[in-house]
Design a protein around this nucleic acid. Structure first.
Lengths: 142, 142
DNA sequence: CGCATTCTGTTGCGATCGCAACATTTGTGT
DNA sequence: ACACAAATGTTGCGATCGCAACAGAATGCG
């Protein structure tokens, strides 16, 4: 039970700290994740619904998140040529550059806030623990 | 880096699953935490600002959260007799009963989603890991 | 082919939350 | 005692997000 309360408190504070570390770049963690996923996608583009699934966002949530990124010129919208229902989110050069600028600071933020506090063994334990929890979430009554 | 992505994905899914488990009681996790803290406080009451610090909420966030709980009759507001600035949040009998009804289900939810997936050793590791991260958050440049 | 079903993305609505500004009250320094 | 600073809670405003409803497009089936 102590472990549970510690988990609740620390995850909240960790997320807040990481968000504040990222704020000077003008990005939120959600924006950053969109840019990362797009930068790793073939041709730097991805269907909206695939993006929503990867980011665990509702369709409407993703639409509004992309609205902001499109307004800032970091992502563009393109219609698919093979399926006229789908919209593709496309990383722009400005988006790629913004990500390249923000990534080192964010990686350093995660490293100092999280991994520097843990031994190598604990990092392995952390990965094993959350993998096990994730498997449990897959197989329960959802 | 894999550990990091797993952590991000699983914490999000775990929170969602716990929120949905708690939804049938009509409470959110935030509401539940308010009731828990008040039920453990002397005389079932607490100053707004102390409550906000404990729950890691902004003053305005706590005001609106209490608005909902007061509307539902689970919490009452009382003026302090010694400091006329402060408002006390007071757990009502209805709030106490609602908590008593919801707690077993929520504890079972946390147990099945989290602790049943882990060995006793992993639970200890989890506590140690997040305690270390929490200590790191205390001592860094905030 | 024709029609129902499914998939995809957007919009209206409401809920949640933080920041800045504010009013009130308390504490502090001289 | 008086003025200034700090603490406390609330409100306006904007940002974020999910659900339900919707419209357009593709797919399956008789």
């Amino acid at each position: 039970m102590l472990a549970w309360r510690t988990y609740i408190e620390v995850t909240a504070r960790l997320n807040l700290a990481l968000e504040q570390d990222l704020a000077p770049t003008g990005l939120t963690q959600g924006d950053y994740q969109v840019l990362v996923v797009l930068s790793e996608a073939p041709e730097h583009r991805m269907r909206m619904c695939d993006l929503a699934n990867l980011l665990q966002l509702s369709p409407s949530g993703l639409t509004r998140r992309l609205d902001g990124l499109v307004r800032d010129g970091l992502v563009g919208r393109a219609a698919s040529e093979t399926d006229r229902r789908v919209m593709l989110a496309v990383l722009t050069p400005a988006g790629h550059e913004t990500l390249a600028t923000a990534a080192p600071d964010h990686v350093e933020s995660v490293r100092s806030r999280l991994f520097d506090q843990l031994s190598d063994t604990q990092v392995d334990q952390l990965a094993a623990i959350f993998t096990a929890i994730g498997l449990g979430l897959d197989s329960e009554q959802p």
